[in-house]
Design a protein around this nucleic acid. Sequence first.
DNA 1: GTGCAAGTGAAAACCGTTGTCAAAATCGCC
DNA 2: GGCGATTTTGACAACGGTTTTCACTTGCAC
Lengths: 129, 129
Amino acid sequence: MSSRRDAVHEILRQSEGFRSAQDVYAEMRAEGAKIGLTTVYRALQALADNGHVDVLRTDDGESVYRACASGDHHHHLVCRRCGRTVEVAGPAVERWAEAVGTEHGFTEITHTVEVFGTCPACSAAAKAG
Amino acid sequence: MSSRRDAVHEILRQSEGFRSAQDVYAEMRAEGAKIGLTTVYRALQALADNGHVDVLRTDDGESVYRACASGDHHHHLVCRRCGRTVEVAGPAVERWAEAVGTEHGFTEITHTVEVFGTCPACSAAAKAG
DNA sequence: GTGCAAGTGAAAACCGTTGTCAAAATCGCC
DNA sequence: GGCGATTTTGACAACGGTTTTCACTTGCAC
Ligand SMILES: [Mn+2]
Ligand SMILES: [Mn+2]
Ligand SMILES: [Zn+2]
Ligand SMILES: [Zn+2]
């Protein structure tokens, strides 16, 4: 793995939630790193392909990336206010997806699952404000 | 609701799976309808906003729309080859999403779930071809 | 008919992303 | 170290789905 790919990965590791490619690029440039936007895109894609980070699409079509604590298959519980993300495992939903697929004769079944809500901190802030 | 918006809705009702805006536009033009691409986009957005159709994003960033047979909350099992879609209910996954959210103190919990696979027809075609 | 709000659509702009390609860095081997 | 082959890089251009613009049309109340 090249040093720039590592640098991109590191940015993601130090981040709280999901980050966009342009976002990561801006931070790296601000820190003085000499890197191009194209390379950031390539690095993020490679990391996603290898399963080192996962990616999801925002409603406005932007891809956002996050370095996952666990390398295993998991899903995300995301605060719709502040973006805080909790990684969650879901044996029940895994089984359900597989079952519903095979039930209809589908093969090579995959799934996407995201859970959204308002996190405790944002609930408290809303109540206080 | 304007007649063009109705026409767009009707196309979706007569369709099997998800359709893209451009796809719907092409069909309507082929049928001789006098409508612009902009209007198709606007109609689909309005229908989605009002909950009359639901929308999801393909991996390549295209928004696709579908008029749902049931107005109730449900999910989709989509063939990644031909786009054929089956509506599925998932009590198990509903409960799981709610549980995993409250477990972490989140409120107003929603979720998105999509299951992908290769449908029987496409499996057969692949084996034959 | 007159006035006004809502709807329409061709074309341009938008914007995240991907392709291009020549320069630069790195590697493998001697 | 030398040095050609391979990989990586990044400025820039292109891409493509979507949105905005804006002049025009349509529907509707009076
Ligand atoms: Mn994760
Ligand atoms: Mn549906
Ligand atoms: Zn929050
Ligand atoms: Zn199929």
